[in-house]
Nucleic acid binder design. Structure first.
Ligand code: FES
Ligand code: FES
Lengths: 140, 140
DNA sequence: ACTATTCATATGGTTTTAGTAGGAATTGAA
DNA sequence: TTCAATTCCTACTAAAACCATATGAATAGT
């Protein structure tokens, strides 16, 4: 199925929360409580975001998390990719080696087109857009 | 992840095969061999397409399958929906009941937008377009 | 020392995916 | 009438993905 996983959705909500508290160190506990997301599950999502350089952390008491960049410079695509790697709705669109017939494969173009469209859309939308509720429904 | 399942991909290849043999009764065995798809798995995909009125069948020896409509009148969206039901990348975009906070939920608009975009793209492309290799990569 | 926090890793239940398998029902042809 | 070829129906299963829960170590402030 074409589904957005909870991991991605939680990550976005986490980052929006951080964006709304820009400048402060935020405890994961607060995010968990306010957003009503399992604390332990959130903890598992964090490393992806750290490794991709989206957030910074400080350990110990009074530690916490903070955005590593301005919300206007974090795209949804980055967030998705930090968790799931390259966006590829089928293997064939990423590596043509994976696919024995992609040269003369008719559907391949369809998947490539759809993949690019999704990728492009996610790239044009930033955390700031989400935070400011600045999502237009018109086809861009 | 955002993945296209094999069921959908096989269904499309099956239908393209039928489109390429318009007018003839096609044996599933041939589709299976030529497209190199498990015969038994294909058999399981068939009922979805039949129930959605995309194909017609004839039982018994010399039976087979045939498109119920012209390739130009079968959209990719129909094919996807025949197998997976309504396109909904998250539950929240379909039924707002499912979702406790969709009114004031910031990401909701993002998912709705992405969902519509995918849905629209799949709707504008027909089997005929695939068959004639008529997929433009430009953003429509 | 104590407490609050992040960090690391293991474990587990459920659902989805991607098939495999066996045989019943139908039809055309020999 | 029998046979073979085909669709139709339904059950089963292995593997992966998804969605967490659990335990405890490491770190840092007070
Ligand atoms: S074989 Fe790769 S898309 Fe068809
Ligand atoms: S609660 Fe439904 S999209 Fe956020």
């Amino acid at each position: 199925m074409i589904k957005i996983t909870t991991k991605i959705r939680y990550a976005i909500r986490l980052l929006i929360f951080l964006a709304q508290h820009e400048g402060e160190m935020v405890f994961l506990k607060d995010v968990s409580e306010k957003e009503n997301i399992s604390f332990k599950y959130l903890e598992q999502i964090i490393p992806y975001l750290k490794n991709s350089g989206l957030i910074l952390s400080k350990r110990g008491a009074r530690g916490g998390y903070i955005l590593a960049k301005k919300p206007s410079q974090i795209t949804i695509k980055e967030i998705v990719q930090s968790i799931e790697g390259p966006i590829a709705i089928v293997e064939c669109v990423a590596s043509s080696e994976y696919c024995n017939r992609s040269n003369n494969c008719v559907p391949n173009k369809l998947w490539k087109k759809l993949n690019e469209q999704i990728s492009d859309t996610l790239e044009t939308i930033t955390l700031e857009d989400l935070m400011l509720n600045r999502i237009s429904m018109e086809v861009s």
